[in-house]
């Protein structure tokens, strides 16, 4: 349910026309209200959303490539870059859209247990093999990232350098990382063998025991329907009536 609502929300957001800042703002306000209701608060969501920012750099060139009224020109000697208003608006639209989308996804993760998320995906007809793989992956993620951070600490402990010493070459560093990856692979492989044997000892015969997710029922479908209607109305309003520069 929540998965459908979140994806629908992001889809609606990405369909919005260029420059519809008011609509994006309204969507964000709705999200903040929801997060208050779920007692997460906007601060945690904003903090979690900063991971997406580095990608913003990819949108920046658009500032200079759209035709239109010039805001200003930067002279780099060899070539000059002219920033334009349509370019600026396009960049800002993309930035706000992705920022609000990230917060919507964060909201989904903060309010849903992983187990329920998996049930949701199963209901959305994600193949069972993938659901099983993802649940197992999630279970061993912390174990293996712990393993790899221990290996990195060991590398750092053995790699003291005199101040001013020449940095080892990238090639050498990369091959050290390669050996670490190889070692980690062997450890993971052997762990997966132990996991398999342990599963077998508990009666695993190739099929995962699943706790049947409760059926969605009428309230669930009603909720999805009302979300869809609300998003469609929102989209219509944004296209037809809200002013945009």
């Amino acid at each position: 349910m929540k998965i459908v609502a979140t994806v629908g929300f992001i889809l609606a957001l990405s369909l919005l026309p260029v420059g519809s800042f008011i609509a994006i703002g309204a969507a964000w306000a709705a999200l903040v209200a929801l997060s208050m209701a779920a007692r997460i608060g906007p601060v945690r969501m904003v903090r979690a959303s900063f991971v997406a920012l580095p990608f913003a750099a990819a949108a920046l060139p658009l500032l200079f490539t759209k035709d239109g009224d010039a805001i200003g020109t930067m002279d780099f000697g060899l070539f000059a870059l002219t920033a334009t208003w349509p370019g600026l608006i396009a960049v800002l639209t993309i930035l706000f859209k992705s920022w609000v989308s990230v917060q919507a996804a964060t909201m989904l993760i903060f309010t849903t247990r992983f187990h329920d998320l998996m049930h949701g995906f199963e209901r959305l007809r994600l193949p069972r093999l993938m659901v099983a793989i993802i649940s197992l992956m999630y279970r061993y993620l912390a174990v293996l990232t712990g393993e790899s951070s221990r290996m990195m600490r060991a590398r750092a402990a053995r790699s003291a350098a005199l101040p001013g010493a020449k940095r080892p070459s990238v090639r050498w560093q990369a091959s050290v990382v390669g050996n670490m990856v190889g070692a980690l692979f062997l450890r993971s492989y052997e762990r997966s063998e132990r996991v398999y044997v342990a599963m077998q000892a508990r009666g695993y015969d190739g099929t995962m025991v699943r706790h049947e997710a409760p059926p969605l029922g009428l309230p669930g479908f009603a909720a999805i329907g009302s979300v869809a209607v609300a998003l469609a109305a929102f989209e219509l309003v944004a296209f037809l009536w809200l002013p945009r520069p």
Binding site: A132, L136, M137, R139, Y140, L144, T145, S148, Y204, M208
Partner: peptide, 27 residues
């Protein structure tokens, strides 16, 4: 793949994820 695939692939996915943590300096 046989029934061993599920634990193997699950742990391998976690392995790829963990292996992406190893980083090295680029000038």
């Amino acid at each position: 793949l046989d029934e061993r695939a599920v634990p193997l692939m699950g742990v391998m996915a976690a392995f790829i994820f963990a292996a992406q943590m190893f980083n090295f300096q680029i000038p």
